[in-house]
């Protein structure tokens, strides 16, 4: 009985998204020089999304059958939050530390639980350098780098 809530929350997220877009579309002009203005599609689409989200929330709310999978909990949640947090921290430090160093730290953190530290360092440094080589050297892509160019 508790599990229906998760679906409702997700429906609410869509509802909020569509309401924001709907309000924004009202500021765009509905008709243009040849009939349709830049506001026509946004208004109708976000309007439809509002109605559909309401439908979805209603059916989820009403339905007796529980969702196949409830919201993440416990270790599941911890794993996901850990991955997301590592990515966000990675994004934050990459302009400062440069690609190779931050990637090594990133990989090291994610592999920490599965491998012994020396093996882990080996993999992290190796993989980061390999990717740097492929992207920056072979494909000449610009990567965020530190003062020393890596």
């Amino acid at each position: 009985m508790k599990t229906w809530k998760a679906g409702v929350w997700f429906g609410l997220a869509f509802l909020i998204f569509s309401i924001i877009f709907f309000i924004q579309s009202l500021t765009l002009s509905y008709s243009g020089a040849d009939g349709l203005g830049p506001g026509f599609f946004p208004l109708w689409l976000s309007g439809m999304l509002v109605i559909l989200s309401l439908c979805y929330i209603y059916t989820t709310f009403k339905s007796e059958e529980s969702e196949s999978e409830p919201m993440p909990r416990g270790t599941e949640l911890k794993n996901i939050v850990f991955i997301l947090a590592s990515m966000l921290i990675y994004l934050g430090v990459v302009p400062l530390l440069g690609f190779v160093l931050s990637s090594t730290i990133f990989l090291f953190a994610l592999l920490f639980r599965y491998y012994r530290w020396h093996l882990n360092i080996g993999i992290s440094v190796g993989a980061s350098l390999f990717l740097f080589w492929i992207f920056a050297k072979v494909l000449s892509v610009t990567l965020p780098v530190n003062e020393f160019g890596w």
Binding site: F106, L107, I123, A127, L131, F135
Partner: peptide, 16 residues
Amino acid sequence: LLFPILLLVCCVGTYT
């Protein structure tokens, strides 16, 4: 082993 590297490759790829 695969997933951290995949994450990293996705990040780099998107950055480029």
